[in-house]
Amino acid sequence: MNVFRLTGDLSHLAAIIILLLKIWKSRSCAGISGKSQILFAVVFTTRYLDLLTSFISLYNTSMKLIYIGCAYATVYLIYMKFRATYDGNHDSFRVEFLVVPVGGLAVLINHNFSLMEILWTFSIYLESVAILPQLFMISKTGEAETITTHYLFCLGLYRALYLLNWIWRYYFEGFLDMIAILAGLVQTILYCDFFYLYVTKVLKGKKLSLPA
């Protein structure tokens, strides 16, 4: 555990909590892509199957359980409790265009051809693109609530911090996981355009709205 890894995890946790609180407090999931949230629930479920087979640490187990629990709670709020506020018409990204190629890639390129390992790889690849329905939704409506941009910033920052963590681990531990690193790089790059808008607009007190 190093400082980048820890702050990355905390940033990820903050993102998840911000989104849950935003929906809960406003009693609305307007502007939130339910499809991205389902993808994240699938990501956590397929990645953390090792909860059933191995114990790493109390920190590891608790964080995994919190992530999974919050992911399903978010999906529940969007599709059940506050479904009347769900903006399905604007959440029109075709997720099969992500899930099918990512599934194929996980079968082809993995560390070990076993069910658990393929599902882990699938979750890594899927996470890297799971935010696309949300970004697509924002580009379609041309705007995002400020609290939603804080969520996206924390979520993007998390993987960027993990990149620094992997550089650290490579130099000090000789640790190198190309699948996680390349997918993490793709994931971080997808947020770059958003990071730019966040810094130039949201941090200066303006609402994030895209030119028509």
């Binding site: 990820h12 191995s54 992530y67 560390h111 640790f175 996680a180």
Partner: peptide, 10 residues
């Protein structure tokens, strides 16, 4: 062989 990645990360 030894695992090229460890599952301690989230």
């Amino acid at each position: 062989g030894s695992p090229v990645h460890s599952k301690d990360e989230l």
